[in-house]
Write a protein that binds this DNA or RNA. Structure first.
Length: 827
RNA sequence: GCCGAAGUGGCGGAAUUGGCAGACGCACACGACUCAAAAUCGUGCGGGCUUUGCCCUUGUGGGUUCGACUCCCACCUUCGGCACCA
């Protein structure tokens, strides 16, 4: 028998064209169906699709296709995170306009995506660098501005000199720029911020609602937000009775143990404290040195904790005690109040600092069954205990002490309970050209004036100069900068910074719901139908960055009454990385395999199948060329099975009998349907779903072989083939479509209902049951499926070899699991 | 240091509610077909042994249980995140 070869290239091209022509994956509101929003993180248009992309898209597409067959109204959009530094840098390098460069890349990548057979609704495509998109990014900035959530302030900010721009805290990794890994410096600049800290509490507590988010992502966000409960405590300054130092502590119960006070070098009081004193020169030199040091130098493990006495003293609000005020490099201005009360006996850092600088140590918490003494302590004691040396609070349990001391301070007006977050406001200004301009105008008379909505978008000038390797800036363009003040009409200047690209990606999932809407960023009616995203898929690298920002934006829009969803993404799947030979694919290692090569050599169906089969989606995947071949072999095998069977159907009528072979095949069919459905829907384990389909194909081959002489029952065989094709459709959409049509169907396989299984067909007459003695398998018996426990035990005792093994032994106990095993416990 | 995830054949991985460890695939070996090769098909494939069968085996050591990859305790290793956060 010779059948037509499996020609993936021809099949895939044919169906891709047809799907496009028939607009097969368009989605619209349909209240008669349950909606399902499948979303993969949109790519930055680098121009090249890599295996990581192929993996996310394959995962998303399986879900989208599966859920459509299950009857959901699926929305599955795609777009481009097109603003940002890499485009600008590439543009400088190649001397092309970033817009043109980006457009070319998008065109190419879209082709690559389509060659993978991903079922996107391209009517919903968005491009964040298009004026009709960033117009609304600007609009959202203005919304925040009006709500007091966007503000400008002078602050010490992260500066990456390689990228020639400032960075948000989230974009600094271990003191290095997240994008280019160069050392981040600190600079004192006036910049725009978004008040994400106003939402810290909700961003933290709503994590609990996200039941279907991976624990590790939630934990990372929790840590990033870093909530601490404690108290703000006011210390007066002995030498300046009118001034005070506010300090935050999580341990107000140790207030009587304060033996010194440390200020951050940036603390606004430092200058005043030392002005005109003998300490002035020394302290100010230290301050300026520390401020110049990069974050990485300041926070390095080996960085010594340096502290300098200012010559001034703080007054303990509890007992009036005077303690020295120091300036210390380990105190951060950005956290709490930039001032720390030193309690060496009960804080390890303070302990080390005190020992080094010969500061006194005083024990104020005594643990039970132990007597701490300042002189003999080897480390700080941070645990629980009774308060001592604490005046009227002596003898109090320290946990209660926290409350009592705080209440006392509050009453005296010397402090109050306070919650502090590690999270800082989001710095969104970027000193770069390729981004959405911040829609603000500075007027000498009116001050800071927002661009009126009607004048949006503030468009990027397109005739940009990129020669000479210079970073272009909007400040160079007089035609851009010079503008009339919208309020008074006099000459004014535009803000020349652009917005962080993470702004653009913080709301794109909303724009997809109404990409052409011209009245607002999105049509609330559409958004309320489609949102939230039911399944979001993307890389773990955005655990804090994008995923936190998008949550923040969603909450702001919820508060503005624009959407009903309080959280953007109901379920999150953080897919693993693609490795080869134990290392991340990279040019320098020479272990790169591209989607293009795979599509060309084996076809998209093979590539998709392998990438889904090799590993569960959230785990890292090790690329294996041999494994790809194995998947290709399986598809060819399936192809041949269909083709050969069709020839058989054409040749004769076959058999009409239902023998055990037919029943067995049917059982395999229904078992496969059950498993594949469950594995996709409930478990997202596509690898085991695929293995179940493989088993079904194997079983069908076995059936054909077993019935070679008596002839196959064509109806049963045909049913098995059709079910196989349906199950395969989400994974290998082209091969499934082609086979489906060859089976004589006219309508797309992707428009079919997902097959259901019949539990009756899974029932077997007889089952094999394992007989154990003392937990070890000692034999097997075959019993009727429905047999009583007594019968089961009886058969087990009679089983081959079991009888002799039981001879002369006392049976202590017999445990049975119906249909599975009998365990006879003997002595 | 703190937090999180994970350790199963030569390899990727499976075992869904505590019930036959190793599904499915890769690699390998042998066989069939062939002049030959490729493709395909078939068989075998955790380790050991005194091989009708027995013993060992899911990072290590203990525990619970008739029975543990699965539950509990302690530890080891790897990966990831945070790291002077007061």
């Amino acid at each position: 028998m010779s059948v037509k070869k499996y020609d993936s290239a021809q099949i895939e091209e044919h169906w891709q064209k047809l799907w496009e022509k028939e607009d097969s994956y368009r989605s619209e509101i349909d209240h008669s169906k349950t909606k399902y929003y499948v979303l993969e993180m949109f790519p930055y248009p680098s121009g090249k699709l890599h295996m990581g992309h192929m993996r996310v898209y394959s995962i998303g597409d399986v879900l989208a296709r599966f859920l459509r067959m299950r009857g959901y109204n699926v929305i599955h959009p795609m777009g481009w995170d097109a603003f940002g530094l890499p485009a600008e840098n590439a543009a400088i390098e190649h001397n092309v306009n970033p817009a043109r460069w980006t457009a070319r890349n998008i065109e190419h990548m879209k082709k690559q995506q389509n060659r993978l057979g991903v079922s996107y609704d391209w009517h919903r495509e968005v491009n964040t660098s298009a004026p009709d998109y960033y117009r609304w990014s600007q609009w959202l900035f203005l919304l925040m501005y009006k709500k007091g959530l966007a503000y400008k302030k002078k602050a010490s900010v992260n500066w990456c000199s390689d990228c020639a721009t400032v960075l948000a805290n989230e974009q600094v990794e271990k003191g290095l720029c997240w994008r280019c890994s160069s050392v981040v410096e600190t600079r004192e600049l006036e910049q725009w911020f978004l008040r994400i800290t106003d939402y810290a509490e909700r961003l933290l507590y709503d994590l609990d609602k996200l039941e279907d988010w991976p624990e590790r992502v939630k934990v990372m966000q929790q840590h990033w937000i870093g909530r601490s409960e404690g108290a703000e405590i006011v210390f007066k300054i002995k030498e300046f009775p009118g001034d005070e130092i506010r300090t935050f502590t999580t341990r107000p119960d140790t207030l009587f143990g304060v033996t010194y006070m440390v200020l951050a070098p940036e603390h606004p009081l430092v200058n005043r404290l030392v002005e005109g004193t003998e300490k002035e020169k020394e302290v100010l030199e230290f301050v300026s040195e520390t401020r110049q040091a990069s974050e990485i130098e300041r926070t390095a493990d080996e960085a010594p904790k340096i502290g300098l006495f200012t010559g001034r003293h703080a007054v303990n609000p509890m007992n009036g005690e005077e303690v020295p005020i120091l300036v210390g490099n380990y105190v951060l201005m950005a956290y709490g109040t930039g001032a720390v009360m030193g309690v060496p006996a009960h804080d390890q850092r303070d302990f080390e600092f005190a020992r080094k600088h010969n500061l006194p140590i005083r024990v104020v918490i005594q643990p039970e069954g132990e007597e701490l003494s300042a002189g003999s302590m080897q480390e700080a004691y941070a645990g629980e205990g009774k308060m001592v040396n604490s005046g009227t609070f002596d003898g109090l349990d320290n946990l209660q002490g926290i409350k009592k001391v705080t209440a006392y301070l509050d009453q005296q007006g010397l402090g109050r309970a306070q919650v502090t977050y590690r999270l800082r406001d989001w710095l969104i200004s970027r000193q770069r050209y390729w981004g959405a301009p911040i829609p603000i105008i500075y007027c000498d008379k009116c001050g800071t004036v927002p661009v009126p909505e009607a004048n949006l978008p503030v468009e990027l000038p397109m005739e940009v100069e990129l020669s000479g390797n210079r970073v272009p800036s909007l400040a160079q363009y007089d035609r851009f900068v010079n503008v009339k003040c919208p309020a008074c009409g006099s000459a004014a200047r535009r803000e020349t910074d652009t917005m962080d690209t993470f702004i653009c990606s913080s709301w794109y999932f909303l724009r997809y719901t109404s990409p052409h809407f011209t009245e607002a960023p999105f049509d609330s009616e559409e958004a309320n139908y489609w949102m939230p995203v039911d399944q979001y898929i993307g890389g773990i690298e955005h655990a804090v960055l994008h995923l936190l920002y998008a949550r923040f934006f969603t909450k702001v829009l919820y508060d503005a009454g624009m959407i009903n969803a309080e959280e953007p993404f109901s379920r999150l799947l953080a897919q693993g990385m693609v490795y080869k030979d134990g290392a991340k694919m990279s040019k320098s290692k020479g272990n790169v395999v591209t989607p293009d090569e795979i599509v060309e050599q084996y076809g998209a169906d093979t590539g998709r199948l392998f990438i889904l089969f090799a590993s569960p989606p959230e785990k890292d995947l090790d690329w294996s060329d041999k494994g790809v071949e194995g998947c290709h072999r399986f598809l060819r095998r399936t192809w041949r099975l269909v083709a050969e069977s069709l020839e058989q159907f054409a040749e004769g009528e076959g058999s009409f009998k239902i023998t055990e072979h037919e029943t067995t095949l049917e059982r395999h069919v229904h078992a496969a349907i059950k498993k594949v459905t469950h594995d996709i829907h409930e478990r997202f384990n596509f690898n085991t779903a695929i293995s179940a389909i493989m088993e079904l194909v194997n079983a069908t081959y076995a059936y054909r072989q077993a019935t070679n002489e008596m002839g196959q029952n064509h109806a049963v065989l045909r049913d098995s083939l059709e079910k196989t094709i349906l199950l395969l459709a989400p994974f290998a959409p082209h091969l499934a479509e082609e086979s489906w049509h060859q089976m004589g169907h006219r309508e797309s396989v992707h428009k079919q209902g997902w097959p259901g299984y019949d539990p009756e067909k899974l029932v077997v007459d007889e089952v094999e049951v394992v007989v154990q003695i003392n937990g070890k398998v000692r034999g097997r018996i075959t019993v009727p499926f429905e047999c009583t426990e007594e019968e089961l035990i009886e058969k087990a005792r009679e089983g081959e070899r079991i009888g002799e093994l039981l001879e002369g032994k006392d049976v202590v106990k017999i445990v049975t699991v119906p249909g599975k095993l009998v365990n006879i416990v003997i002595r």
